[in-house]
Simulated scan of single mutants.
Amino acid sequence: MKKCFSLLVFLCCISVFVEALPKDTLPVRGFCIAAPRPHDLPAFLKFIREELAPRQINTLVLRVDFNYQYTSHKELRDPDALSRKQVKELVQACRQYKMKIIPQINLLGHQSWAGATTNLLRVYPDFDETPWVKMPAKYEWPNADGLYCKSYCPQHPGVHKIVFELVDEICEAFETDAFHAGMDEVFYLGEDKCPRCGGKDKAGLFAGEVWTIRNHLSEKGRMLWIWGDRLLDGKTTGLGMWEASMNNTHRAVDMVPKDIMVCDWHYENPDKTPVYFAMKGLQVITCPWNRPAVATQQLQDMYGFRQSANKELKPRYQGMMQTIWSDAGRFLDEFYGRSKPQKDSVNTSANCFRAVFSNQ
């Protein structure tokens, strides 16, 4: 009871704080989550109607990856994947509330997780940047191979034909003019033993892949979104290897196209990196996760950046996007109080979402 009362007081204080923020229309009021599995779709559509729409969420990023019944590459489908008809239900719900919907497929990095490769490298192992790194029976971090997630080799001559066919199909299905390519936490890139990109500049390789994806999307009038961590210097900033780069990809910030959207995520501290991206000529949104106090400071900062910026910089500060790093079903259980309470009853993704995006 005491914990519940403390949480209520905390959220009320956060709500008052948010209400006191400068009144400004953020171009992006976003929500990012894994696309629901078919059995969770009805509950998620209800969540769009009853929670996202009243909070004026205008952008929904769905991490689809292989959770779609692709026709271009049936071999890459997940076993329990969304049908085209089910995707159209999502599209219609978002259209009804004037919500932009953006699908994501992880490109370049995140081609494995823990002890298993994801569908692309499982089906097409030749695309692997590090085929000599074998997936462990029991995954632990740190490990001798520096294995976090595998990457595909951006220089492999066959990789883009496959992934772009997926990208085109999913963008057409979601009827969207934007695509999120992920590209975060890329630890394997330009490895010395890779016969194609070994010894090449990692920043140049990363920027080259951004350009390749951007140019493909641009042919059909679509915009590229990516996570921003690989464009930050982890050593100089002290941000480290997760929220920033320790393998020299950060210099790509001066090489990437300027018409992309950078999703700048920091979860434990409200670091002021949106200013850095804006000064580099890039559009940027701030992305919190599960700490309401950090997220509300980030929101205040975003309002402040926009309020104090000159006419060139202001349009680059695009807004905020709540990120959810569980599947849709688990998040909905958390949000509606159906799951077992977490030990930390304050710092949860549901509380963070409520704090940043009021439904008043």
Rank of each mutant, 00 (worst) to 15 (best):
T348H: 04
D168I: 02
L166K: 10
K98L: 03
I260A: 05
A181N: 04
T59L: 14
G208V: 05
V256F: 09
A295M: 03
P274T: 11
M302V: 05
V123F: 10
E75R: 11
V9C: 10
L189I: 15
P274Y: 13
F5W: 13
E140D: 08
D264Y: 09
H266G: 06
G146P: 00
R251C: 07
P103N: 10
N269Y: 14
V294G: 06
D65H: 12
Q360R: 08
G240S: 09
D168E: 15
G304S: 15
D177I: 01
D80V: 13
Y148E: 05
C263Y: 07
E89C: 12
E175Q: 14
A144P: 00
T286E: 08
L313H: 05
Q307T: 08
C194N: 13
I213W: 09
Y317G: 08
C149S: 13
M135R: 13
C197V: 01
A328S: 07
F10T: 11
R63Q: 13
A34K: 15
R354K: 13
P79E: 15
Y303S: 00
W325H: 10
V9R: 08
H250C: 10
L205M: 08
I324N: 00
Q298G: 03
K200G: 08
W225R: 00
P315T: 02
E165V: 01
K280E: 02
K23I: 03
T59W: 03
Y336D: 03
T212A: 07
I285H: 02
A34R: 15
A350P: 00
P315I: 06
F17T: 04
I105W: 07
Y124T: 07
H39M: 12
G204V: 05
W265M: 10
A35K: 02
Q298C: 08
S15Y: 02
L313T: 06
I57S: 09
P27T: 13
L8S: 03
G30H: 02
H73G: 01
K100D: 11
Q298T: 02
D40Q: 08
P341E: 09
Q360C: 11
R95M: 05
Y276W: 01
A252I: 05
C149G: 03
K272R: 07
C12A: 12
G238P: 07
V18H: 00
A114C: 11
Y68I: 03
F331D: 02
R49L: 01
P274C: 14
P36C: 14
K311F: 14
Q342K: 15
E191Y: 07
V91M: 12
G109Q: 03
H110C: 09
F331G: 02
V18A: 10
C4L: 13
F335T: 05
G158I: 06
K280F: 06
F357G: 00
A203C: 11
R63F: 11
R222Y: 08
M279Y: 04
Q69N: 11
W132H: 15
V9H: 05
A43Q: 11
D327T: 09
D254S: 14
D40C: 09
L8I: 04
A244N: 03
D65L: 03
D128C: 07
H110L: 02
E191W: 01
F174Q: 01
A144V: 11
K98T: 07
I162Q: 10
P54R: 03
P79W: 05
